[in-house]
Amino acid sequence: MPADGPTILATSGGLRAADRLDWQVAPLTHHAVELAGVTGRAPRVCLIPTAVGDDPRLVMTFYDNAWRVGWAASHVALLPMPNVDDLRAHLLSQDVVWVWGGSVAGLLALWRLHGLDTILREAWEAGVVLTGVSAGSICWHVGGTTDSFGPTLRPVTNGLGLLPYANGVHYDSEPGRRPLLHRLVAEQVLPTAYATDDGAGLLYRGTELAEVLTERDDVRAYRVERGADGAAVETELAFRRLPSPRS
């Protein structure tokens, strides 16, 4: 059951600390699943953990979370070889695709090698809800700031471009992210950008930002654009706080 139209929830959140697991699903990811509008059956949610090398412990924790919240879970791994015979058929059959964080540069290279760039665009156009955290947020955009190449942040400019903007993640928790994004937008290395503090998400309907959603009251999202004088201009965006995390 697809969403009403192309839908992306790009986040710097969607998971939280847990007592019995490595992490637990948080409101932003729950909301992404709700956006799919599934009724009468378990929503089909597929994890793509390419950015962390298809880490098996992460995959195991995802399945444990999915069992606890009632999702029909699957995952797509690319290393050492794809774990499903038909990547296109599998991803187009999902309600939600959740992309994990890590190396966005590595993610994009492997996706293109295996044709996931084309498949995920087709899934998005078909109404499969795309969501993700960090690298799983930047990937849908033109580019953003990344530590994929080492501890010194650098630009990435070869995102999938489903959304015609740049993306800044971890805007409040990693001090170098904000000034670098400002400089890249001012110098027109990147286009107008949307940035999220940890615990905030950007809901896009089609290619337009429809709403900013947060998991806490103390986090924000921002628009960063090049002003008439060539300097970056940052604007704080209105937001809606999602309900408290589920147990």
Rank of each mutant, 00 (worst) to 15 (best):
W111I: 02
W111T: 06
W111V: 02
L113V: 15
L113G: 14
H114D: 08
G115K: 07
G115S: 00
L116T: 10
L116E: 01
L116M: 09
T118A: 15
I119K: 03
L120M: 07
L120R: 03
L120N: 06
R121K: 14
E122N: 08
E122Q: 11
A123S: 09
W124C: 00
E125W: 05
G127V: 02
V129P: 09
L130D: 11
L130Q: 07
T131Q: 00
T131P: 08
V133N: 15
V133L: 15
A135T: 10
G136M: 04
S137P: 12
I138N: 10
C139I: 14
C139D: 12
W140V: 05
W140I: 08
V142M: 11
G143L: 12
G144M: 10
T145I: 15
T146K: 01
D147I: 11
S148R: 09
F149T: 11
G150N: 10
L153D: 10
R154A: 15
R154H: 14
P155S: 04
V156I: 15
V156D: 13
V156L: 13
T157K: 09
T157D: 07
N158D: 15
N158T: 15
L160G: 04
G161W: 01
G161Q: 00
L162Y: 04
L162Q: 08
L163R: 02
L163A: 06
P164N: 04
V169I: 03
V169A: 03
Y171P: 04
Y171K: 03
S173D: 14
E174Q: 15
G176Y: 13
G176E: 15
R177K: 12
R177Y: 12
R178Y: 03
R178H: 11
P179S: 04
L180E: 11
L181I: 02
H182I: 10
R183I: 14
L184E: 07
L184I: 03
V185N: 04
V185E: 10
A186K: 00
E187G: 07
Q188M: 13
Q188R: 13
V189K: 10
V189T: 12
L190K: 03
L190V: 01
L190M: 01
P191T: 00
A193E: 02
Y194N: 04
A195D: 04
D197M: 00
D198M: 06
A200R: 00
A200D: 05
A200M: 04
A200C: 04
A200I: 02
L202A: 11
Y204E: 06
Y204F: 08
R205F: 12
R205T: 13
G206N: 01
G206F: 01
E208K: 14
L209M: 06
L209R: 06
A210H: 13
E211A: 06
E211F: 08
E211G: 09
V212Y: 01
V212F: 06
V212P: 07
L213H: 03
L213I: 04
L213K: 01
T214Q: 09
T214N: 05
T214E: 03
E215P: 11
R216N: 13
R216P: 13
D218E: 14
D218I: 11
D218V: 09
R220E: 14
A221E: 09
A221R: 00
A221S: 03
V224L: 08
R226P: 08
R226Q: 03
R226M: 05
A228E: 13
A228P: 10
